[in-house]
């Protein structure tokens, strides 16, 4: 008898609590359903509709058939990888530098890193166009300083695309890396030194591995964002750097071919999920969102 004391009542309370939680979450769930699941489902559906309005694999078959699609996907991966690599090369040392500063100064530095977030993406992209063009500020100054003699072509090509993309993406890398570095107890470095590690050795054997999850998270984020990036590469690439996103736009605007655009979208989405899935084999995904600490 006493073994079951209040058991049924307590179970009911538990169930009621769960129901209440679900009730509270339902508006958000509904919103996700409307703005996420339905459009993606529709995209999926449209990609399988042929020119005659019936079911067709034509949109996917074309991707395999036409070499240009392969090139575009390759180019997209290439640009994304390069951008990610450059972001790491610039962002990691910068995050390291900031993480070693006293908290107040470090926060100030972080705000400067984040400042670009508050200005329009389009404005920043066009600003680069102005800076980097043949008669732009960079070329004029470099020539007057004697760094180079002839104006160098820095926009409407890969260089300009990369400069712009790295600039836009850098905060996405620096934030998680900085977070991971701040969380590293400096006693680890002292311990390493005490055990005989020179500062360089301690950096590579202790600091880098401990900040690696943050670096991985940041790099993954940048890479995935790059895969679908449109505005900056479109403006600064000047049509010479064609990415998947641009192909989607041209399919719709030029050819009004929703099916082909949708199929590209579906493939891009699938690739992104594939990358996330592979990445999850190496690192816990909560780190992407800053959770799990």
């Amino acid at each position: 008898m006493t073994a079951d004391l209040n058991a049924a009542g307590l179970r009911r309370d538990e169930a009621a609590e769960r129901l209440a939680l679900f009730g509270l979450a339902s508006p958000a769930l509904l919103l996700v359903l409307i703005v996420m699941v339905l459009p993606v489902g529709w995209l999926f559906y449209v990609s399988f509709v042929g020119a005659d309005g019936g079911f067709s694999m034509e949109n996917y078959a074309r991707m395999v058939r036409e070499k240009s699609y392969g090139r575009i996907f390759l180019q997209t991966f290439n640009v994304s990888l390069l951008t990610t690599g450059l972001c790491i090369l610039i962002g990691y040392p910068l995050a390291y530098f900031i993480s070693g500063l006293p908290t107040r100064i470090a926060n100030l530095c972080l705000i400067t890193v984040l400042l670009p977030f508050w200005t329009s993406l389009l404005v920043r992209t066009y600003a680069w166009l102005v800076l980097l063009q043949k008669q732009g500020l960079v070329n004029t100054w470099a020539i007057s300083l004697g760094l180079w003699d002839e104006p160098i072509k820095m926009v409407h090509n890969l260089t300009g695309t990369l400069i712009g993309m790295v600039h836009i993406m850098l905060p996405f890398l620096i934030l998680p890396v900085y977070g991971a570095m701040r969380a590293i107890d400096r006693d680890y470095l002292k311990a390493a030194a005490n055990l005989g590690a020179s500062p360089t050795r301690a950096f590579w054997t202790v600091f880098v591995p401990l900040s690696a999850p943050g670096l991985f998270a940041g790099a993954l984020m940048v890479f995935i964002l790059c895969l679908g990036f449109f505005v900056t590469p479109a403006v600064l690439g000047g049509g010479r750097v064609i990415l998947v996103s641009m192909k989607i736009v041209s399919n719709i605007e030029l050819f009004v071919n929703w099916g082909a655009a949708s199929a590209l979208g579906v493939v891009l989405l699938a690739l992104t999920f594939l990358i996330l899935w592979v990445a999850s084999k190496f690192v816990r995904l909560e780190q992407l969102t800053g959770g799990g600490h």
Binding site: D185, D187, A191, A192, A193, N194, L195, G196, S198, P209
Partner: peptide
């Protein structure tokens, strides 16, 4: 002399064991 050249062992209060 720099710490890594002193050749002394040390046990830290929080142990400072490398988590990785």
């Amino acid at each position: 002399t720099a710490p890594h050249l002193r050749d002394v062992g040390m046990v830290f209060q929080n142990y400072a064991l490398f988590p990785h």
